[in-house]
């Protein structure tokens, strides 16, 4: 099969980008979407043109490096699928495919389809962890975690940090990403001591990075390759209000709400 690609080309953060059309012939339905870009890049090199820059590493849907908006859908038309796991058999022969980078102020374009997602790292640095000095851990089975909680925490913990939720959100909100982390750690007994300082740290950083507010469109969940539920967003809100309330009274009840 052959496809007609319209790829966003942008030489640098400051540069003005534009869509450039490329026709790629003899595409196999078994190719992954990134492999089509590989093929195209080979052709560009042969023509002495600069290949298209795009992030990728594991090509197994787990590292979260790849990500582009394909025909208006982050990671493309398939649900629960990253761009690297998307196969060409899902496109019609001769299809026109438009490819854009994630678009958000907090994710500035580095080059072509590559964006800077370090905002996510800074959010985690603001408290997305459990403080456990190496060597100070108690015997693992000394604290029991109900299977339900462990499973629910795992549902949230699956987040691969790809940023598709932000890309898909009409408000470019990072609520699903933050909610996933807050829920993963907040659902486990180990996460309780820092539960409230954590949520405040993450939310403050999220706002500082310039992400939008969640107005409950649910697009993030639809785009999320791990299908993380927006139920976790409600949980995040709940924890956030609780933390504010606790802070008022934390001098009375030393419950770790203070950072």
């Amino acid at each position: 099969m052959k496809v007609e690609l319209h790829v966003w080309r942008q030489t640098g953060p400051a540069a003005r980008g534009e869509f450039v059309r490329y026709d790629v012939a003899d595409v196999s339905p078994d190719m992954s979407f990134l492999e089509v870009l590989d093929v195209l890049n080979e052709q560009l090199v042969a023509r002495r043109e600069e290949p298209i820059a795009f992030d990728h590493d594991c090509r197994e849907g787990i590292c979260g490096a790849c990500g582009m908006v394909i025909n208006g859908r982050p990671h493309g038309p398939e649900r629960a699928t990253t761009a690297c796991q998307l196969h060409m058999r899902h496109f019609a022969d001769g299809a026109a495919i438009w490819i854009e980078p994630w678009r958000a102020r907090a994710f500035p374009v580095v080059k072509d389809l590559v964006v800077d997602r370090s905002a996510f790292d800074r959010i985690i640095q603001a408290g997305g962890f459990i403080t456990a000095r190496t060597g100070s851990a108690p015997e693992a089975n000394s604290l029991l975690v109900p299977k339900r909680d462990a499973d629910l925490a795992m549902d949230a913990a699956q987040c691969i940090g790809c940023g598709a939720c932000v890309a898909a959100c009409p408000n470019a909100s990072a609520m699903l990403f933050v909610a996933a982390k807050v829920s993963h750690l907040g659902l486990l007994p180990q996460g309780q001591p820092e539960r409230y300082s954590r949520v405040e740290g993450l939310v403050a950083q999220m706002d500082a990075e310039g992400f939008g507010a969640c107005t409950n469109h649910g697009e993030c969940m639809a785009a999320c390759p791990k299908e993380i539920s927006i139920d976790f967003i409600a949980r995040l809100n709940r924890d956030y209000f609780t933390s504010t309330f606790r802070r008022q009274t934390s001098d009375l009840s030393g419950d770790g709400a203070e950072p």
Binding site: G72, W98, E100, A168, H217, E219, M221
Partner: peptide, 9 residues
């Protein structure tokens, strides 16, 4: 975006 397909909203 050039276009953002609504899915869930």
């Amino acid at each position: 975006y050039r276009r953002l397909e609504p899915v869930e909203t």
